[in-house]
Amino acid sequence: MDNLVERQVALVTGGTKGIGKAIADNLSKAGMQVVVTARTAPKENTNGQYFISADLATPEGAERVAKEILGKYGRIDIIINNAGANLSPGGGFSALSDEHWNNDWQLNFMSAVRINKALLPTMIEQKSGVIINISTGAAKQPLWEMTMSYSSAKAALNVYSKALANEVGSKGIRVNVVSPGVVKTPLMLEFVENIAKSSSITPDEAFKALIDKVGVPMGRMAEPEEIANLVAFLVSSEAKYITGTNYSVDGGALPII
């Protein structure tokens, strides 16, 4: 973090909870001007981050965020596309309606596409910028009974990120992907509790079943800060020759090299 330039402007979508909050707080502590987005404002803002209320699953939400950032700061240096969630029910293909598929793709894929499209022209003009798209290990190791539409949307995000990195690399802009595994966030804990209720087991038993299903050699969830630390490195000057890469942070879960 010592090599991050103070007063850079960083956007963290979905930045009020879980992984997004950990990333935003990390960048704030480094001295950056951090903008966070979510549909609802956080209960407290202890790091002086600028909040924009927006639904990034809509074109209007992305346009409003970009317009407000450029109007206030006149520049954008870092984009962390973290907004995302597994919105659909489990149960495989037969449980998923067109609406489920559309909702997952709008939030987990199109939100990043729209934000990048709106802000990239400014980065290109500056001849510098870093984009980190937060994906998921489930994009490479999908669980059909839990994450089919979500995993598909994030897999598309991975391919898009590689293509974008190739397109804008010569313009001074780096694009990378961070793919967390099972992370201890409010959404994940709610997910575990729902598994417990539907299966008539305890939350501890549901957690163990999930870890066993995913196959996490380290035997625990990641802390949000462990994801944020990698993101902090990737946006720093220490990583200035790294682009077009997808980093797994999953406790060894992905069963391939």
Score class of each variant (00 low, 15 high):
133 N>V: 11
72 K>M: 10
209 A>W: 08
118 A>D: 12
88 S>C: 03
185 T>N: 03
186 P>N: 01
13 T>R: 09
93 F>K: 05
252 G>E: 00
134 I>N: 09
80 I>Q: 00
135 S>C: 12
244 G>K: 11
28 S>H: 01
118 A>S: 12
43 K>E: 15
247 Y>W: 15
105 W>Q: 14
102 N>T: 14
60 E>P: 06
34 V>F: 04
38 A>E: 03
51 F>A: 03
236 S>V: 02
111 S>G: 08
98 D>H: 01
225 E>R: 09
242 I>L: 14
80 I>A: 00
76 I>N: 04
37 T>A: 10
224 P>R: 02
4 L>C: 08
76 I>M: 06
163 A>W: 12
43 K>Q: 14
54 A>M: 09
231 V>C: 06
44 E>L: 11
222 A>G: 14
18 G>A: 02
102 N>I: 12
156 A>C: 09
241 Y>G: 08
178 V>Q: 10
256 I>Y: 15
133 N>G: 08
37 T>Y: 09
237 S>L: 12
195 I>L: 15
176 N>V: 09
248 S>H: 12
12 V>N: 04
255 P>H: 00
223 E>I: 03
15 G>L: 03
6 E>S: 14
25 D>S: 12
216 V>Q: 02
1 M>W: 05
230 L>T: 09
41 A>E: 15
199 S>E: 15
226 E>A: 01
